[in-house]
Design a protein around this nucleic acid. Structure first.
Lengths: 339, 339
DNA sequence: GAGCTGAATCTACACGAGTAGATTTAGGAA
DNA sequence: TTCCTAAATCTACTCGTGTAGATTCAGCTC
């Protein structure tokens, strides 16, 4: 009754404390906590569970990660977590990952390639089991990812750097759907608000826009660049209005731009869709609650997240990386001119 | 030239590999990487840095966290990362934390107390150095936090569970500012759209609303509950319109509700602010880009994040937990009736 | 050259968990 | 009773890092 007395351990409770309290070895505690790899007698298990409860034991994830070489976590890098599309995407990824017992670490690169690289480094150091990279640009710098040897999936990407799995959307088809719909409304001068991506690749939305116009025998409309933000769209909206050859319809390449454009039009007393039609891209909740509600090319966020998670956990390293190009869906609301 | 030959190590590169390549002991590598605690000769340091670069060595954060008992990470729990207020807050926290060399893990409890608890557990297991809890309710269940013994700060909270540091906003004063402004516009029947929080505490915005009305000698206006979401606001907006004693102004307790309400009004052809004035709460970017732009009681997101981070890293455990109640600011735009 | 000093470097252990392989134990058959 | 077997449990090593304390060594003084 002297040396066997159990003391309340100071500081964090470890497996050792539990073992001492339950009167077993540390291995047994581990077997109970992880349900294996060896059996434990029911009576012993009860004692251990009791000790865990009484002492408030929580396994140390860092030690676990060290031993197993896996943190059961996936890291996500997005260019702008203020953009509801990425918020939504991150949310869907968290959902899909948690389904498989993985946690998620979300980092934000604020449109900066430097921070994007830094975020990847941080995630790699944290021993995440996978990285989802939604880059600021179309052809991201993947050297950091390659060096880390962590399985990765490029989100929001059409498979540009080879050797990496990717999940994206058919931007060109989406662009065509939007512009063809506007052409169907009788518009002949259709402008494009496109992003300021710093990569070398062409934005598929621009390709789809131009192709649709030419196929219909229409002249190329005006194109303006702006960041994918509300203020960016606002500026672009004002510039469209002041053009000599002002378009009668605009395809905005994301919802945030469109909402900024909408504001510029409201302020100028330009009615949407009567004086100016507008179709946007993303299908975020914001597009549904703007006034007028935006007709928009919706990205299948849920499916993208699920495909991404599957591409990561489903594959052995030797297999070929998969490329998923998912279809978009044109959601008709008011801003295009439909009743 | 036989056993001393340096091989390219298979798998992840460890400190040992670097030491072997550079021809030094592992301790020296550590001294170089961490800049201490002992000095290293410049020539040796150069050799080590070279080896690190050539081999692509990245310190294992899990091992580091295990040894140091700190992951240099703070965990954040928010009730809804779709809500721009929380997105913005999380972003500001990330910013402030990264300033001090800390990373951030963001988790989302989707309005569920069960998930909120689960998220706290996960963060605790991950050895985060601190937790910021923005709970779904006013009086959160902190037993999980207490058990974890991790320093924590309650965000968006007025200090209700004692013993915890907290950072919040003066909801009552904010509510008064909004309602008094509407009274100043001559309104005498002012409704309130308030949240459906499941806690036991009264929402300060409700208190401020009611107090302002009574102090002005006005009758209590109608009050409706809804989730802090756009669809929730939309439903509430329709119900306000169908009331026998329809109010002429509404104070919405967050921007999302207000945007939903705006949509209900637009659909019904009710003009804002001419037929119905509206003031909301939060001051998110969404409130600036709605139509009409929302007059709103802005929360000082930046300051809240900084105060929270300071409350966490600045304090020794023994000190009294700090309570920060920050002031709000009424931002005048169009929805209230001001030009 | 002996003795000393301090800088530079190395050796060796700890952190908490997972688990292979060794050891103990209970129960049954002969 | 004595063996044998399988289940239960324990011992002991490992993961990669930080760092205290031991060790080496060059440079200097007398």
């Amino acid at each position: 009754m002297t040396t066997t007395a159990v003391q309340t351990p100071r500081g964090p409770v470890t497996r050792k404390d539990v073992a001492r309290y339950a009167g077993v070895s540390t291995a047994v505690v581990s077997y109970v906590v992880n349900g294996g790899p060896k059996n434990v007698a029911p009576a012993t298990e009860a004692k251990v569970r009791d000790a865990i409860r009484v002492l408030g034991y929580r396994p140390n994830a860092a030690a676990r990660a060290l031993k197993l070489g896996s943190s059961e976590t996936i890291g996500v890098v997005v260019p702008d977590n203020t953009n509801p599309f990425f918020t939504h995407l991150a949310h869907a990824v968290e959902e899909a990952a948690s389904e498989l017992g993985y946690g998620m670490v979300l980092t934000n690169s604020d449109g900066s390639l430097t921070r994007e690289r830094k975020n990847i480094r941080t995630l790699a150091a944290r021993q995440v089991d996978g990285v989802f990279l939604a880059s600021c640009v179309f052809d991201p710098d993947v050297t950091e990812l390659e060096a880390s040897e962590i399985p990765s999936v490029l989100l929001n990407n059409a498979g540009s750097p080879p050797g990496f799995a990717s999940v994206g959307v058919d931007l060109e088809a989406g662009g065509r759907a939007a512009v063809q719909h506007l052409i169907g409304h009788g518009h002949t001068n259709i402008g494009l608000a496109i992003g300021t991506n710093t990569g070398n690749q062409l934005d598929g939305r621009e390709v789809g826009w131009l192709a649709s116009l030419r196929e219909a025998g229409l002249p190329d409309g005006p194109m303006l660049h702006s960041p994918f933000t509300r203020p960016g769209g606002y500026e672009v909206g004002k510039r469209f209005l002041s053009m000599a050859n002002r378009p009668t319809a605009i395809f905005a390449s994301n919802d945030m731009q469109a909402i900024g454009i909408l504001r510029a039009f409201h302020e100028a007393g330009v009615r949407v869709p009567e004086d100016m039609a507008l179709v946007s891209f993303d299908g975020s909740l914001d597009s549904e609650y703007s006034w007028p509600a935006l007709t928009t090319v919706a990205q299948p966020v849920q499916l993208m997240a699920e495909a991404a998670v599957r591409a990561l956990v489903g594959k052995g390293r030797a297999e070929e990386p998969q490329h998923h190009i998912l279809p978009t869906e044109l959601i008709i609301r008011q801003s295009c001119g439909c009743k």
